[in-house]
Design a protein around this nucleic acid. Structure first.
Lengths: 254, 254
DNA sequence: TCAAAAGTGTTTTACCTACACCCATGC
DNA sequence: GCATGGGTGTAGGTAAAACACTTTTGA
């Protein structure tokens, strides 16, 4: 392990003590998953995140993180909370990185200061993230089921839980699905997504009626074939109306 | 104007580039108001805010700001957004302060950096804020009607508008009034508060039925006397149920 | 006594809930 | 053919929206 593998960071260009963390949600095999990084030579996982350049909008940096880890752009990304506890410092983790010669010891003080982090959550289509890419300090980037999270650094578990709670709330005003499901999907698949996010079962028939009532779905002429039982109809979102619903919001809740 | 009036700030104790701003709402004469500070020797106004000590939780610092400006504690205070635009720097304002000898020129660089600010909004009872106190850089602290805002520094107007929008949304899940109205109030007064926040008229009878349906009001034996027309009944909040409703949330919206 | 605001009630409509039934498909 | 999931319809209850009427008070 030589100098070349050390992470080069120009700390003077960065907003000190500020970071961002992205809770990137994906939906696969009826499970809600988040994209996590495993730190090098460690069994501790962390949210994809990064620092904020002094000359770049914070929201813009979140877009960068998402792009770098998933390759995806212009998808749903929403700032939801700032985590500013005093205990948010990386002393332990920083020492570990320096021991492993992954970090320049001169950066120790900078890394070990209290970091305030801005939480974002993103909704991405699982299958479109072809190769999740770890960052410089990590050696793995994987989808983890939200109900079976590994050992997470600092308060990252709280951040994930808060993101999930926020997502649940938002479901009362906004549709979801556009960035979590493939372009064409069946209503039962959409329902499964809702049930997974909400963590409760919904009535088939009422779900269909309510969802169709939102007037954001377009029925295609196709059906999902090759599966057992009756072939369900394929739908897609009416993107214009979908985005209108996002911006204007629904009236009632579930 | 001598050295003694200069503001003493130990910048080394502060989280660099991070500030908080509080949108403190009050309700008076059927108007929604916010508490604003007028900067010394200037006609520019600003939100009450401050910097964040490295050793103190960000949320805790917001409580401090509220306490220092209004004298109030343990009231509704909610973090709602981080404003992180690159353009958030105080160059203009800093120069003005130094010219007025209100700020040590040595602090110029620190003050002029890009500041990311955490927005909080608070709901306070107008009459309980007996003497709004300006901070060290301000010479006035006054209630301003939200529909008639003065000239505000930086993006503080956006912050206020966003706080108001957030408050409107929250109304769908939570009751308000406990910290905005006096202990005892009439239902028409509560309705007027809702109408002011929502910026639309509501039906008297439906409002009453819906509000009573929430089961958070307790009717007192008293009536509001001395006013014209039929004396309305005075109510107060059932604080236990009120806070339960805050934490658990309602189902539907308006 | 009269205008204006407060308290109470009713009708209509829409939606949510909880069901029952038939249809298509793979095994 | 039969179990399983998908599409469709319907009756009952609840709540929201849109109303009218009576009561109380100060001027």
């Amino acid at each position: 392990m030589n100098k070349k593998e050390e992470v080069a960071i120009q700390v003077e260009d960065l907003q000190p003590g500020l970071s961002i963390d992205c809770v990137i949600f994906g939906f696969h095999e009826n499970e809600l998953k988040v994209l996590l990084l495993r730190l090098k030579n460690s069994d501790i996982w962390a949210l994809p995140g990064g620092f904020v350049n002094k000359e770049i909008d914070v929201d813009q940096e979140a877009i960068h993180v998402l792009k770098n880890r998933t390759g995806l752009e212009s998808i749903f990304l929403h700032q939801f909370h700032l985590f500013g506890s005093v205990s948010r410092n990386n002393t332990y983790h920083t020492n570990h990185l320096i021991e492993q010669k992954l970090l320049d010891p001169n950066l120790k003080e900078w890394f070990a200061q209290r970091f305030v982090t801005v939480g974002y959550y993103a909704l991405v289509e699982y299958s479109k993230v072809e190769e999740p890419t770890p960052d410089l300090l990590s050696e793995a980037c994987e989808w983890c089921a939200i109900n079976d999270l590994p050992n997470l650094m600092l308060d990252h578990k709280d951040i994930i839980l808060e993101a999930h709670a926020t997502l649940k709330k938002e479901l009362n005003h906004q549709p979801i699905g556009l960035n979590l499901l493939p372009e064409k999907f069946t209503i039962p698949e959409l329902q499964s997504l809702y049930e997974t996010v909400l963590e409760k079962k919904l009535d088939r028939r009422n779900f269909r009626r309510k969802m169709l009532g939102y007037d954001i779905l377009i029925q295609t002429n196709e059906k999902r074939t090759g599966v057992a039982h009756k072939a369900p109809d394929l739908y897609k979102f009416d993107q214009e109306k979908y985005h209108l619903a996002i911006s204007q919001g629904f009236k009632s809740g579930w």
